[in-house]
Design a protein around this nucleic acid. Structure first.
Lengths: 161, 161
DNA sequence: ATATTTCGTTTGCTAAACTAATTATCTTTT
DNA sequence: AAAAGATAATTAGTTTAGCAAACGAAATAT
């Protein structure tokens, strides 16, 4: 692999790591981990959602949703309600406490990074965004998902699925 | 928050999520998690490194290095050797099996992001890396506290601590 | 010689995420 | 209507990353 490509990957990982470290701070401040925060934010967005919908939207499994839900429920931030038409479903929504917490913990990652970002000169903001979008397109999860497995399957003996 | 800042955050999220999804695929296909793979790659790069150097380079704690090391050692990919001049140090290097695995495994990263990235014109590669590093520094700034913030520029009213 | 620092390891914890199996409920098919 | 199948959420159990704190061993400073 090109040295530059490798370097790019390294920096990407640094960003990941920085974000994680960042998350820890947010967690300390808000009492919510980033996944939990995201869940709360989405619920604030959509008002109400079933567990499965959240799973899809967050890109994680239902089991993980359940476990996040436990935590948020025990903190009193989310309420659950059995579905009317379909009693298997569990509808989730923010409690008042949830909304309050969200209002106080405004946007976690967004605030600080956003503030710093906003203070950059306009041309640099544009440039960074363009770069990030480029990287995102290079990473593009869907594309990878479909084709990568097939490509790689030829490597060794084992076949996923 | 600025629309641009918000947008930047959104794209950043996309990148994070894409990367995570990506990691899962790489892990499935190579048998190495992304952290493990990175460790192997670095060792391939530098030939030999002490545990502490790896920790610094990877941006994780020594304790975590040790635990990754255990896994890679048990897979026979990495060998350890006590330092000659300083016997506290542990020098790590790839075994033949490690090199072999890496030679087969990198398809995961190469075929997609790496290949795509490598195919970009050189100036764009440099630009993207610079942008990523900038973003990393923005994310990191909060962590590293006031001193780093100054390096980045006059940012705004807020003072950590 | 003694104290301090440094390097790596161990221990013990948190949190996310997965899979597989289970329960409860809906939907089809017979 | 009863049996079979599909779907929603949960539970159980596992893996992995990561950290901090305590610790032993070795190097360095006093």
């Amino acid at each position: 692999m090109d040295p530059k490509a490798r370097h790019a990957v390294t920096v990407l990982r640094q960003i990941l790591r920085a974000t994680e470290a960042y998350d820890r701070i947010v967690t300390r401040d808000t009492g919510l981990t980033s996944s939990q925060l995201l869940m709360v934010q989405i619920l604030d967005d959509v008002g109400e959602a079933s567990a499965g919908m959240l799973a899809t939207r967050m890109g994680i499994s239902q089991a993980t949703i359940t476990s996040l839900l436990h935590k948020l429920e025990s903190k009193g931030l989310i309420a659950r309600k059995r579905g009317d038409t379909d009693r298997r479903q569990v509808w989730l929504s923010l409690t008042d406490a949830g909304r309050t917490t969200l209002a106080q913990a405004p946007e976690g990652l967004q605030t600080k990074f956003g503030t710093r970002f906003s203070s950059l000169p306009d041309w640099e903001q544009s440039m960074l965004i363009a770069g990030l979008e480029r990287v995102a397109s290079l990473l593009d999860a869907e594309n990878i998902d479909a084709s990568a497995v097939l490509t790689i399957g030829e490597l060794g003996g084992e076949q996923p699925g």
